[in-house]
């Protein structure tokens, strides 16, 4: 297949951005007062989105030669997942930008902030929906490619969405913990949801590989290259064990302890390890899915 590392990063960053923004909205509503956490999550979200988009365009050589051609993206076909994605990304980007402005200048009294404050709820709803869309879009984009069984299956978009949320949540915690460690701690309900996402992701991953592996030769070849071929170490070591199992186990243990002792002081080092691994795993998922795709062969040999 022709897409390479730039598109991998793009898919990863767009998903992460969506997850980080959703995480910010979640924390904002569930844990009022953690304004710095929210702010940092939104910065991470918008930065990731911007870098992702820059990579997408950098990969589109034609646009570099002839930037005018980018305008045709808005004329896109109804059938093109990429053109939906562009619209979703634009909406998500605008909302993220407005919400970031709001988070930044919330404390100041001015007209603009007042206006935003008034429409904050609908903005959040639009933002969350568009971000969910972006998360799913990163999977659908490659999911419609019929020739690659590893991509073209019912599970992949959901898997990518779940992984997007998961790595976004991880990123918002990770970066908040760097700058405002106290606000990043004790978000137990976020952590519980995160654990659920990790478990769901694991299940989806294995369902998907099982289904793809029971299909045609190209699918089998893709799955084999992951589980017992060229990508074995990356797949088992970094994605499954490092990116899913280890963080899930640590989070589960932590959450069990919390259930016993609601005042437990969360461990910052563990947070960095867990969330760092999840981010790495999220990237690895995109990387492996892009790299291991094998196209169908119609030639009969």
């Amino acid at each position: 297949m022709v897409w390479g590392i730039m598109i991998t990063w793009y898919l990863f960053l767009a998903g992460l951005s969506a997850g980080a923004f959703i995480s910010s909205v979640y924390v904002d509503n569930k844990y009022p007062g953690r304004d710095k956490f929210v702010l940092i999550s939104r910065i991470v979200a918008l930065l990731a989105l911007a870098v992702g988009l820059i990579l997408l365009i950098a990969d589109a050589e034609g646009a570099l030669h002839n930037p005018l051609s980018l305008f045709f993206l808005l004329h896109g076909t109804r059938t093109s997942v990429m053109s939906w994605g562009v619209i979703l990304l634009i909406i998500a980007g605008i909302v993220q930008f407005i919400m970031l402005v709001y988070s930044l200048f919330k404390s100041k009294q001015n007209k603009l902030i007042d206006i935003i404050a008034k429409i904050k709820k609908p903005l959040e709803i639009v933002g969350v929906i568009s971000c969910l869309g972006v998360g799913a879009y990163t999977g659908l984009l490659i999911g419609v490619v019929k020739t690659a069984p590893l991509w073209n299956n019912a599970i992949l978009p959901t898997l990518f969405l779940v992984s997007a949320l998961s790595s976004g949540i991880a990123a918002s915690q990770f970066f908040s913990a760097i700058f405002v460690s106290n606000e990043a701690k004790g978000l137990w309900s976020l952590k519980k949801d995160h654990l659920v996402l990790l478990i769901v992701e694991m299940l989806l991953l294995f369902f998907m590989l099982f289904i793809v592996n029971s299909g045609n030769a190209a699918g089998v070849e893709s799955v084999q290259s992951l589980v017992s071929g060229k990508y074995t170490i990356l797949f088992w070591g970094i994605l499954v064990i490092g990116g899913l199992l280890v963080p899930a186990i640590i989070e589960a243990i932590e959450i069990r302890h919390v259930n016993h002792d609601p005042h437990l002081n969360p461990n910052l080092i563990l947070l960095f390890v867990v969330e760092g691994l999840v981010i790495l795993g999220g990237f690895m998922l995109r990387y492996l899915v892009i790299e291991a795709a094998v196209p169908l062969n119609f030639l009969g040999f």
Partner: peptide, 22 residues
């Protein structure tokens, strides 16, 4: 724009990048 989405989507690998124009 040279996004190569069509290249990924074409089942027959029938598309080429024209490097002079991207």
């Amino acid at each position: 724009i040279g996004c190569k989405y069509c290249m990924e989507a074409c089942p027959y690998d029938a598309r080429e990048i024209h490097h002079a124009t991207g």
